[in-house]
Computed example of a mutant assay.
Amino acid sequence: MPNSIEHHLTDALLMGYSAATLPEAFSLTIATHVSMCDECRARLGAFDSIGGAMLDAAEAPAMDPSAMAAALTAAKLPPAASPVPRKPGILPTPLQSYVGGDLEAVKWRAISHGVRQAILPTQGGATARLLHIRAGTAVPDHGHNGTELTLVLQGAFMDDGARFARGDIEIATEDLDHSPIADIGDDCICLAATDAPLRFRGWVARIAQPFLRI
């Protein structure tokens, strides 16, 4: 099947991931997208090559190549809480490590009518969560106090006239206020990473926000 991903990562995010300077939640989201997207994987490879060349040119004590590779891998992809066998499923391999398996292992919690979430164990100033949005359901209207990366794993959602399907990633910043709606068909499952609390318009969502950690 040809690659049909239409919404990709920015160069800035790929470079940050390559340099291992991003919060763990962002690194997890980027690693998951890259595992699904040939284009972004190729671009990341180019940034990795540039970074490797700069390291080679720098005056620094020599490091065993295998040790350097292990260090870079550990910095980009933090180890899972517990090793799990990889198997085909909805969740790509980087994400299965955090969940402990595929969708059947996710511990969902309802956060509003038709929307469930599961917060993943990450550190470093950002939060990662899985979202399960019933087909046809809209996410409460909100803005952003920072950056939010939303990667579609199943189904699709519509936002401001654009459609985001499996493998697509939406990058929302402080200038975006929106209310995405899950497309008709399969329920929409996404991986979302945020580095600041969302800015909800509705008072019910604002009251619940501290308890739901969104």
Rank of each mutant, 00 (worst) to 15 (best):
P2D: 12
S4I: 14
D11C: 06
L13T: 02
Y17H: 05
A20D: 15
L22K: 03
E24A: 08
A25Q: 05
A25F: 05
I30D: 00
M36W: 07
M36G: 14
M36I: 11
C40G: 09
A42K: 13
L44G: 01
L44Y: 02
F47S: 04
F47K: 08
D56E: 14
D56C: 06
A60H: 14
P61M: 13
A67R: 11
A71Q: 09
A71F: 07
L72M: 15
L72I: 15
T73F: 05
L77H: 03
P79V: 11
A81G: 08
P85L: 06
P88W: 09
L95D: 01
L95H: 01
S97I: 06
V99N: 12
A105E: 07
V106F: 02
K107V: 15
R109F: 14
R109L: 13
L120R: 00
T122F: 00
Q123V: 14
I133E: 04
I133W: 02
R134C: 07
A135S: 13
A138K: 11
V139G: 04
V139H: 13
P140I: 01
G146P: 01
E148D: 03
L151C: 08
L151Q: 03
L153A: 08
Q154W: 02
F157N: 00
M158P: 06
D160K: 06
G161W: 06
A162F: 09
F164I: 06
E170N: 07
D175V: 05
H178K: 09
I184H: 12
G185I: 13
I189Y: 05
C190L: 14
A193S: 13
L198T: 04
F211P: 14
F211T: 12
